[in-house]
Design a protein around this nucleic acid. Sequence first.
DNA 1: AATCTAATTTAGAATTATTCTAAATATAAT
DNA 2: ATTATATTTAGAATAATTCTAAATTAGATT
Lengths: 157, 157
Amino acid sequence: MEDERARTVFVPPRRERSVVEAHLAEAGLRPTSQRSLVYEVLLGHAKEHPTADEIFIQAKQEKPDISMATVYNCLDALVRHNLIRQMHLDRAATRYCPNMHEHAHFLCEECGEVSDFEGQAKPRQSGFKVPREFKVTQVEMNMRGLCPDCTEKGVSR
Amino acid sequence: MEDERARTVFVPPRRERSVVEAHLAEAGLRPTSQRSLVYEVLLGHAKEHPTADEIFIQAKQEKPDISMATVYNCLDALVRHNLIRQMHLDRAATRYCPNMHEHAHFLCEECGEVSDFEGQAKPRQSGFKVPREFKVTQVEMNMRGLCPDCTEKGVSR
DNA sequence: AATCTAATTTAGAATTATTCTAAATATAAT
DNA sequence: ATTATATTTAGAATAATTCTAAATTAGATT
């Protein structure tokens, strides 16, 4: 493969690794076509916080042979390498989120939409008594209520 | 049944409704034997934050005929009436928690134990930017890290 | 370029969690 | 006692996730 670059004539310039693939490699993951695709799909649907199944359906359009098991494998790898996060609301399927800026989630109980609130968790100022002896390394915060749109529409709840 | 009280001799005093049943009734739920049992089991295992399945197994010891569907029905009713809460960590089964004092959860990544941290959520001081237009009615906070025991045992992570 | 090793993907089965269904039963009100 | 409604039930159905063992691929090494 190195050799390709050594050829002297008419070698089409090596396509640069896509940004996505670079991300994967940086994170220490082999940028296989499936992984790249899964990650790409998720990046393209950040707002929707899609489920594994939804990602699978999307990915299948590009790559009809991809299997559900692979989607789960890829998602798990991405989670382990901190490229994406899992979200668990209710008893429904796990949702995924490629936004790795620290943020909290807000679920509108009226329309079901999930919004991201950026910021940096301050667990010890959140109102809960976190004993000094506990070492907090990760904070997940999910809020519920009414989004601006639904509030406006006069839903009171 | 009322009549029992009217009898004149050797009537064992009607057992007063248990505290559990009173709770259910207060919350506007018919205190059926199954519901009372499910709630009781959960109250007796608050620390463990058991799954529906674990509750089912426990309940079955008392009442071998209870069915899984009933356990789910009961849990859902209890949740809807604010007697218990659901917890979602990871992709595993939903866990239940009868502690209704406002609190956050802490999962020790070493030993897997879940601890409750009491307090009152202050979503707008938690570090996340919660736009004024969002009406927050419920906050769920899950932290991860090392519990005191595991920290002591020298696990570094 | 061929070879090797370990990681990854795959289909499909298996498992687990949850919901649904329609009939039977229990509750509370009348 | 009667009635209307809520609840429970077994079991089937569905949905979410994991497992398995074989095939493929990536990247490193010759």
